[in-house]
Amino acid sequence: MLNNAGEAALDCDRYARTLEKCTELAVWQISLAMRESDGAVERLGSAIERMSATQPAIEAMRARLAQSGADPLMVADIDGCMRRMLEDLAACVENIQFYDRMVQHLGHLKHYLASVSGVYAAPGTSRAEVAVLEHANARFRRRLLSDAQRSVFDHVFRPDNRDDLESLAERAARAHNAAEGTIEFF
């Protein structure tokens, strides 16, 4: 028969195991979501490659049509279609890169959660556990991809944090967007 202290310890142990399982669940759900979309995005990338590869054939067709004395309006239509297709292709190339970025971000988050879940398994706040958490936090921060992601991280860990993180994340992402696509020569 357990006394009050024993029951409290048991509850604490059960709570810690549940926390560990919750974290493990998050890790595997992230992993599953990444696996489920990987193949589809690879196929999307290949489709973009094939669409791009048709460009010389369409241009050759247009040249043949123009040389054959076809209606100039028809040739102009092909030019218009071609221009729109190239604009859409450029948008595809630019925007598919956000998937790559999200996957990298989720990958780092997955490793972070996996590394901290072990700490939950052993309740208490010994120096060793705190050190594991601090190490995991530092490594996760290092692996973050942008100043926007790092500013969200820093705000979460700020002791006086009272910010609305949703709007902070939005502001940070907007600030990062301003730098996207920039090219600087040294």
């Binding site: 292709l89 450029a90 190339v93 630019e94 925007n95 890169q97 956000f98 790559d100 970025r101 730098a179 996207e180 696509g181 920039t182 090219i183 600087e184 020569f185 040294f186």
Partner: peptide, 21 residues
Amino acid sequence: KAAGATGWVVKPFNPERLVAA
């Protein structure tokens, strides 16, 4: 720059600008 890179492009790149660079 210190490593010897010629330039720095921030993802996601814009295709037209990358080709120009």
